[in-house]
Amino acid sequence: HMTFVALYDYVASGETDLSFKKGERLQIVNNTEGDWWLAHSLTTGRTGYISSNYVAPSD
């Protein structure tokens, strides 16, 4: 899985979204569905959809 880092804080707007904080590391589970990616937070252990605009590759 690809690992990304959050560029900004994000508060989930629905049950399927994932809230995260700036600097949080996220593993991308599925990024084939446009701008919203299914991600797993390595910080909180939660999984949900994130906006690809809010993250950048961590490598």
Rank of each mutant, 00 (worst) to 15 (best):
Q27W: 14
G45F: 04
N31Q: 13
D35Y: 08
L26Q: 00
G23K: 01
I50M: 03
R25L: 15
A6S: 05
A56H: 07
D9A: 03
F20L: 06
R46N: 08
D9F: 05
F20Y: 07
Y49C: 09
L42S: 05
H1Y: 14
I28V: 11
V11Q: 11
R25C: 14
M2H: 11
G14E: 12
N31W: 13
L26C: 06
N53H: 14
P57V: 10
T43L: 10
D59W: 14
G23F: 03
T32M: 12
A12Q: 05
D35S: 11
E24N: 01
G34R: 08
G48Y: 04
G48F: 04
D9Y: 03
I28Y: 02
Y8G: 06
N30S: 14
Y49A: 03
T43V: 12
I50Q: 00
I50P: 00
N30A: 11
G34W: 05
H40P: 00
Y10P: 00
W36T: 10
L38I: 06
Y54V: 08
A6C: 08
T3D: 08
V5L: 06
V5G: 00
T32Y: 08
N53R: 13
T32W: 08
A12E: 03
M2V: 12
T16W: 15
R25Q: 11
L42K: 04
S51F: 14
K22A: 11
N31R: 13
R46V: 06
V55P: 03
I50G: 00
Y10L: 04
Y49F: 11
S51M: 14
N53W: 15
A39N: 00
K22T: 06
S51Y: 14
G23R: 01
Y49D: 02
A39L: 03
S13K: 14
Y8Q: 10
I50W: 01
V5W: 04
D17R: 12
E33Y: 10
L38F: 09
G48P: 00
R46Y: 07
N53S: 14
P57Q: 09
G34I: 06
D17T: 07
A12D: 02
D59G: 11
I28H: 01
D59R: 09
T44K: 01
G34L: 07
A12C: 05
D9S: 05
T44M: 02
Y8N: 06
S13P: 07
T32L: 11
L26M: 08
G48A: 03
L7N: 03
G45L: 05
Y54N: 07
S41A: 02
T47H: 06
I28F: 03
D17K: 12
D9W: 07
Y49I: 07
A56F: 09
T43P: 01
A56Q: 12
S19Q: 05
V55K: 02
E15F: 08
I28Q: 14
F20R: 00
